[in-house]
Structures are given as structure tokens and as C-alpha cells.
Design a protein around this nucleic acid. Structure first.
Lengths: 155, 155
DNA sequence: TACTAATAATCAGCATACTTAATATATCGA
DNA sequence: TCGATATATTAAGTATGCTGATTATTAGTA
């Protein structure tokens, strides 16, 4: 018996891999090329049009440098437009293009639906319990992460 | 309110990032350079000396290609020895060196201890509940992963 | 035994995820 | 207003995590 099998870190890592694989399968079935990270970014930009990269990173708990690359790819695919902010020339202001909106409309129900498949083997009560516990501990551990959530533009 | 905040995929991703960050902090505090993935590999090789890379990948739910790179780094640091198997010249047989054993002895208690910090904000009952649910769903979803656990050398 | 299929490992390439450093721009205080 | 400081982004480098292809070797079969 390998000692790591019951460790939180190992189990969380595996569940994340399952989550990413389920997402990839569903997108492939939909004929869409979009990663979980790209979906989250696109969805968050749509919720806050004109947000800058740094604020977006805080809004969805991404590393700022990583996000730069993610936006590069979303821009290249034509789903996101990036412009220099008129109020702060350091910042890049993001908006979702029409193609991005269309894509979002199409994949949103798929993404919602696939969440249940990530937690396969659990009944509805157990899924709700697991989600509640995940929410509680990610909230409590937020500051430990290198990419914490900073909902309102930081402390 | 961004729509992803209550999705399983997003929460699992964040908890994994917290997990990795906690691990990195504790190792840094210990003065050791070791990633969670490297620890898992080292620990699993120690549990099954002479295991080949493919079997190891199945034993700890790693992608085989990824594992090659992980072993490269462990070998370079002198913690693992890699030799061509006498029974199957395609295979590379792995063992933990003395330096690897020493490192394991040193970090094992640290790794065990840090698991609690990954799930901060939960009381003992809640931690046990979360672990049980994680175990149940990773078990059920094992085959969905690109790197499933194959405990006894495959199906 | 020759042919074929399967397996172990590696390579090339792409996408996260992070660190440290550099560059450009803003802001604050003296 | 000048200078120190802080912030937004990008660049370079490392590590995981995957896909698809290639090579070497083994195993199974006609």
C-alpha cells in the first residue's frame, strides 16, 4: 500500500485531473477547442466587460503571468479583444467578441452539465456536501494560494 | 457574481493550487527542493523497489510521459537510480538511492503533517468527510482520467 | 519461423502554473 | 515638481500534464 493514497494532496490532484479530462471530452464531443481555464477566463470577462488583466487574475484566482498566455490564445482564436486602457496605459482592457459570445452561449449549458460528471459515484446529497466542503476550505485557504481570489480588486 | 465560483471544476482547481503552494512552502521551510509529484514518485518507488516506469505511472496515477521527466529530475538530483531491466530491455527499473532514502525519512513526517493545512478551515469531522468523499469520487471517476490508477499492473 | 500486434520509453509540441527579472507607467510624499 | 515606490504587463526559465509520433523490444500467431 503506497502511503500517498489517502493524502488530501494526492486525492485533490487526481480529482483535478479527472475534472480536466471530463471537460476536454465534453468539449471535443461539442467540436469545440476550449480548455477549462480558457472557459473560466472568457466567462469572467463576459461578466465584467472592460476588466483589466490583473483584476481578472484576482477575480478567477489565476496567476497573473499565466493569465497573459491564456489571453494570448483567446485573442488569437478571436474570442477576446485586448486594448490599452485609456485611463491607465499600463493596463490591458479585455472584452468578449461576438464570436466569443456565441461560443459562450453554446458551451455554457455543456459546462454546467458536466460538473455532475466530475463528481461521479456520489449521490446528490454527497455532491452538495462535497461542494460545500470544497467551498469552505478553499475560502479558508485562499491566502495560501499563489493565485488567491481577490474579488473586489484586492485588499 | 461570476458563474464559475460554485462549479466543482473551479473549486477543485483552486484547492489543488492551495495544496501545491502549501507543499512548496513546507519544503522551502525544510530547506528541501522537492515537488509534490516528485515526493509521490519517490515514495512509491521506495514502496516497490525495482518497479518499471510504466507500472509506477499506473501505481500513482501519472501520465507516462510526464513521469519520464519527473524521474529525469529525481535521477539528476541523485535520489533515484534508473537501470535497464534485465528481463525486459524496453523497461527501466527504478530504485531509491541512499540519498533518496535519507530525504524520504526527513520529509515524510513533514508531508504527513501538511495534509491538515491543505484542508484549513475544516474541523476534524469535516476533514474526514471531505477525504471520504474525495476518495469515493476519485475511485468512481478513475477511468475518466487520462492517467488512471492501475494498482496491480493494469486490468 | 516470419509477421503482426502490443508494450516501454522517448521526443516534439502545446497549455497550465509558477519564479524572478525587466520595462513602462502611475501615484504618493517631500 | 522630483524622487521613491507601487503597479500592470511581459519575458525567460522550470515543472507538470497532456497528445501524437517514433523507436526498440517483446509476445502472440499463422
Amino acid at each position: 500500500m503506497v502511503e500517498i493514497y489517502n493524502m488530501a494532496g494526492h486525492l485533490v490532484r487526481r480529482l483535478n485531473q479527472i475534472s480536466v479530462a471530463v471537460f476536454a471530452d465534453r468539449m471535443a464531443a461539442e467540436g469545440v477547442e476550449l480548455t477549462p481555464v480558457q472557459f473560466a477566463a472568457l466567462s469572467a470577462i463576459d461578466a465584467r466587460p472592460g476588466i483589466a488583466q490583473a483584476a481578472l487574475a484576482g477575480a478567477i484566482a489565476y496567476d497573473q503571468t499565466t493569465l497573459g498566455g491564456v489571453i494570448d490564445r483567446l485573442e488569437q482564436k478571436g474570442f477576446v479583444a485586448r486594448e490599452v486602457s485609456p485611463r491607465d496605459r499600463r493596463a490591458r482592457v479585455l472584452t468578449v467578441t461576438q464570436a466569443g459570445q456565441d461560443l459562450l452561449a453554446r458551451v455554457r449549458p455543456v459546462v454546467r452539465d458536466l460538473q455532475g460528471e466530475i463528481l461521479s459515484g456520489l449521490d446528490e446529497d454527497e455532491k452538495a456536501q462535497l461542494l460545500a466542503l470544497l467551498k469552505k476550505t478553499t475560502d479558508a485557504g485562499n491566502d495560501k494560494s499563489r493565485a488567491p481570489l481577490t474579488p473586489r480588486g484586492g485588499i
